[in-house]
Design a protein around this nucleic acid. Structure first.
Lengths: 211, 211
DNA sequence: AAGAAAATGTGGTCTGACCACCTAAAGATT
DNA sequence: AATCTTTAGGTGGTCAGACCACATTTTCTT
């Protein structure tokens, strides 16, 4: 699988997953249908068979395909497995998917700020402020406290997943906020001023208006 | 990797995953540590390097390891299986969990309204309004359109999961909004007035101020 | 026509060979 | 001696070819 010289050398098997999805869509293949053999895919996609297999192994692990020795590889009926669909979203590591992760993380964090604001008392936020003053604030720790204050276990889980994937992206454009930014946000929460809170968050995350 | 003759011939890469786990445990390897190279594993486990790679690819997809070209393969800091944890959240059907689902669904829908508002043009919302007028509006259909307008595949997936679970609850306290409520919301979107939009949603969902 | 054997196609696996990249050791320079 | 440069070795990434085990299809025998 030839790569443009100066291009980011994505892993071949990721690219194969993408192209395989195109083939499935173009040919209108559905659950239960057979997909081309490993050797044929290897030829059509100009890739080694081992690379094709790595891609298929990935899809198999996600339950998207099923391989039967001596027969072939078949598309699996995964329209019930929501979590797999969620995961598969992440696997397609195109720019849009990454952007979606970042955007969603921001929205969830904003939600947590609002939830915390409506559920918690001034006392809780005073403690948050005090903690912010007394410690060397790490982003992950600060927002873990925020999400805790939101008191919604489900959102907590979703946020956790988002953070993990966000970190796995290894984005080098992460703008590390200063301690003052966190302190400002904590104070806004303490005052109970929603507008102020939301604004402090956007400044902290270096957002103008768009996500 | 030799197999006992009459034994179930499990796939080698699955067996490699198992043995690799043993190695990690026996050697006391932790997050951030380097695991043996592909070639060394190939020797120690009496398996081909391609099989070892299929196993590593699987672990990589699950976020358990991280491969760095030219350096090696490292154990990743994964805090439990995230997806399983998410699932377990759904299974715990206590009142708090249910409440969390409802609350989260509301937050996500509000997020989508805001995203749509910031991303879409008046034209899109006019079409939404027109559709609302011409059809017998079902809640699921209306908000599917909203989520689509938000143009974030990840949020779409999350929302889908929430809706499915929400429906499985069979809540008999679902307050079915009138057609006018949806129309009001569509018009608010068309006007581009965020406050009006959020308010229209709260009225539609019969929320006062708390979620 | 029915059963048996061979041919074909498929996934499963191993081996060996490159390449691109990173790191550290050896060497050269100052 | 300290520092920089070069080199060698290790590592993941990929490809090609070769078998094997298994299932299906075709062909051949009876």
């Amino acid at each position: 699988m030839l790569m443009s010289p100066n291009e980011q050398s994505k892993k071949v098997y990721i690219e194969i997953v993408r192209q395989l999805r195109e083939i499935i869509e173009k040919d209108g293949l559905k659950a239960g249908d057979k997909i081309p053999s490993e050797r044929e895919l290897s030829e059509r996609l100009n890739a080694g068979r081992s690379s094709v297999r790595e891609a298929l192994r990935a899809l198999e692990l996600l339950g998207l395909i099923e391989t039967r020795r001596g027969e072939g590889t078949y598309i699996r009926d995964f329209r019930g497995n929501q979590l797999v669909q969620l995961l598969s979203t992440f696997i397609l590591q195109d720019k849009k998917a990454i952007q979606d992760v970042v955007e969603t993380k921001h929205m969830i964090e904003l939600d947590c700020l609002q939830l915390a604001l409506s559920k918690r008392s001034k006392n809780d936020f005073q403690r948050l402020k005090q903690w912010t003053i007394e410690h060397n604030v790490e982003d992950i720790d600060f927002f873990t406290r925020i999400v805790d204050l939101a008191d919604n276990h489900l959102i907590y889980r979703i946020w956790k997943i988002l953070v993990d994937y966000y970190r796995s992206l290894n984005r080098n454009d992460f703008h590390k906020p200063t301690k003052e930014r966190y302190l400002e946000l904590a104070e806004a929460l303490e005052k109970g001023d929603e507008e102020w809170v939301l604004n402090a968050y956007r400044i902290l995350r270096n957002l103008s208006d768009e996500s």
